[in-house]
């Protein structure tokens, strides 16, 4: 319904879905083109917005030996492209006890000894549709630099294409997920202001104020709402409100 208009007007081009030729409007993404051809997705389609990693696609162009990659939901079709989706690729994931696990490179290595089978061929980085420096974050994990590995792997959407191409048979994206969690919960600076607020609420500091608000008529609430002081857009982090009401 929502997709009809483009296909009525645009020029048709040939693409090869798993080797079979279809004519599709040239403006479509690979995902919409596959649907246009008559497929109904069960696998290979999730968010349709470039973030869930369901739709990893590899393709070749005529006369070009290279492998190209893209997310089907984000990549526009090209004439004569030969494509297939890789909606799933088996990869081992190690379970771990997050609460007790130590945030050091050696602990990651113990869970994933195959880390050291990386031969630095860079196939993972080349195949990543998100331009993540996969090989570099694996190298950072091996060095024990979890902060760097977390930073380098942050845009990973876990489509699994890296694991499908790896000579060392690593599950890179699972390793990266583990490392990001170790960093976020155990190595990133503490956030005392959050803990302080949690405690204040648990101690009932705001309860009376909230109870009052809950009982108020809409008109009373509207008055308070309209009069509430706004933190200006350009205010510094340590901005202080004029009124201490409700704080």
């Amino acid at each position: 319904m929502s997709q009809a208009p483009e296909s009525l007007t645009a020029k048709l081009i040939p693409i090869y879905i798993m080797g079979k030729r279809y004519e599709v409007p040239e403006t479509l993404t690979i995902m919409k083109a596959i649907e246009h051809a008559g497929y109904k997705f069960i696998r290979g389609c999730g968010c349709r917005g470039g973030i869930c990693g369901a739709c990893g696609t590899v393709y070749r162009r005529p006369g070009d030996y290279r492998i190209h990659v893209g997310l089907a939901c984000q990549t526009v079709v090209e004439p004569e492209m030969v494509l297939t989706q890789i909606p799933f690729y088996p990869a081992n994931r190690a379970s771990y006890d997050y609460a007790t696990m130590e945030a050091v490179g050696a602990a990651v290595g113990a869970l994933y000894p195959e880390l050291f089978r990386c031969v630095a061929c860079n196939a993972c980085t080349k195949v990543c549709p998100m331009d993540v420096e996969v090989m570099d974050y694996i190298a950072a994990v091996k060095r024990g630099d979890l902060a760097e590995a977390m930073r380098l792997s942050f845009d990973c959407i876990q489509c699994g294409l890296c694991a499908s191409r790896c000579m060392g048979e690593l599950p890179q994206y699972h390793i990266a997920q583990l490392v990001r969690r170790l960093y976020g919960g155990k190595l990133a600076p503490a956030t005392d202001h959050v803990d302080a607020m949690v405690k204040k609420i648990a101690d009932g500091y705001y309860q009376q104020k909230i109870d009052e608000l809950k009982k108020m008529s809409v008109d009373e609430l509207k008055k308070l709402y309209t009069a509430r002081e706004q933190e200006p857009h350009q205010a510094p982090e340590l901005w202080k409100a004029k009124s201490a009401e409700g704080l």
């Binding site: 202001h193 302080a196 607020m197 204040k200 609420i201 705001y206 104020k209 909230i210 608000l213 609430l221 308070l224 709402y225 509430r228 933190e231 340590l238 901005w239 202080k240 409100a241 009401e245 409700g246 704080l247």
Partner: peptide
């Protein structure tokens, strides 16, 4: 951030 915000303002 208790120095400038609270559940009271969030509620409103």
């Amino acid at each position: 951030k208790g120095d400038k915000d609270s559940p009271y303002y969030h509620y409103l």
